[in-house]
Design a protein around this nucleic acid. Structure first.
Length: 310
DNA sequence: AAACTACACAACCGCGGAGTT
DNA sequence: CAACTCCGCGGTTGTGTAGTT
């Protein structure tokens, strides 16, 4: 069965929104609400736009109480922590950042934060081929082409032993962990910085595995997996133990929960249509505490590479 | 000043899930 | 239960602009 188009593409305007269109849409929604039907909304509002386009414009740009501009360090922290815990589920991350949209955060991550992560790494280490291969991390992070997705094992909803390969060998990972712990930032590495660097550093390589891929197999099902307790995750301590007593990841979960807790109140300020996603605190806590992305383990015996078990 | 490049952000696309008929 | 519609999500692309050569 083919999927019906969401709108008559021939009679629909595309591209940037004009101020007049914005005003029409804003005015209509302020007056009538969305009516729970985005498809019919543009017609009612007198707009020659696709319903999805209207929805996006409203959610990402016109909606009241939206923040535009620089992200604060707090917001950076939250994004990184959550990204490290739950991957690229931008809507969930956005739900913890009032005034920010998933699109905003996604763009911010892709254009700035990811580079910031890279920037925290010691460049000299990158010259050593036996240590972290940054380019390979980044290559693995973008599932844009079908070829890349075919070369990378895609997560199966119902498979608990999905094993994406990290671009490190076991010893490389140890080098990397040492590098991170000895990072020469102006302040001693705080627990956040370690969490930030380790979680996010690895996530650069693991992003694909946690995001929805082109086959979309990794979307809401992950939530369902967690809820249903079907996933046989390896314990959180696995990775930290292996890298010589560094307990970044286990503390990461704790920190994440604190962050989520501290932001839940703010998040609750979102009401109805304002909130793109309304996950409960407990839901997110559980999601994070059982998050696949925090569960690492070496498997030197098989491949000689470090492997994350999901 | 023109050409080129890099970056940031808005918008589009296609998919899966949920709800309805 | 299948067929269908709509919503929401995340990845990707397009476009404008600032910076550099």
């Amino acid at each position: 069965m083919g999927r019906a188009p969401c709108c008559d593409k021939a009679n629909v305007k595309k591209g940037p929104w004009s101020p007049e269109e914005d005003e029409k849409l804003r005015g209509f929604i302020e007056k009538h609400g969305t009516g729970g039907n985005w498809i019919s909304l543009p017609h009612k509002a007198g707009l020659k736009r696709c319903g999805k386009s209207c929805r996006l414009r409203w959610l990402n740009y016109l909606r009241p109480n939206l923040k535009h501009g620089e992200f604060s360090e707090d917001e950076d922290r939250i994004i990184c922590t959550l990204f490290g815990s739950i991957g690229s589920r931008w809507s969930i991350i956005a739900s913890q950042l009032p005034g920010r949209t998933d699109n905003d955060i996604k763009n911010y991550w892709n254009t700035k934060l990811k580079k910031k992560m890279v920037g925290t790494m010691n460049p000299s280490a990158l010259k050593n081929p036996h240590q972290v291969t940054l380019s390979s991390m980044l290559q693995n992070s973008t599932p844009s082409s079908s070829s890349s997705s075919s070369s990378l094992p895609l997560r199966n909803n119902h498979s608990s032993n999905y094993q994406p390969h990290m671009p490190f060998t076991g010893s490389e990972a140890i080098s990397y962990a040492s590098l991170m712990s000895g990072n020469s930032s102006s302040t001693p590495a705080s627990s956040f910085e370690r969490l930030y660097q380790v979680n996010c550093g690895f996530m650069l390589g693991g992003e694909t595995s946690c995001s929805s891929s082109s086959d979309g197999s990794c979307k809401k099902n992950q939530m369902n997996d967690v809820k249903e307790g079907e996933v046989g995750y390896v314990g959180v301590g696995g990775f930290g133990d292996q890298i010589g007593g560094l307990s970044y990841l286990s503390s990461g979960v704790e920190d994440t929960q604190k962050l989520v807790s501290s932001n839940a109140g703010r998040a609750s300020g979102w009401t109805g249509e304002e909130s793109p996603l309304d996950y409960g605190l407990e839901e997110i806590k559980q999601l994070i505490s059982t998050s696949s992305c925090n569960n690492f383990m070496f498997d030197d015996s098989k491949t000689g590479e470090m492997v994350m078990y999901y």
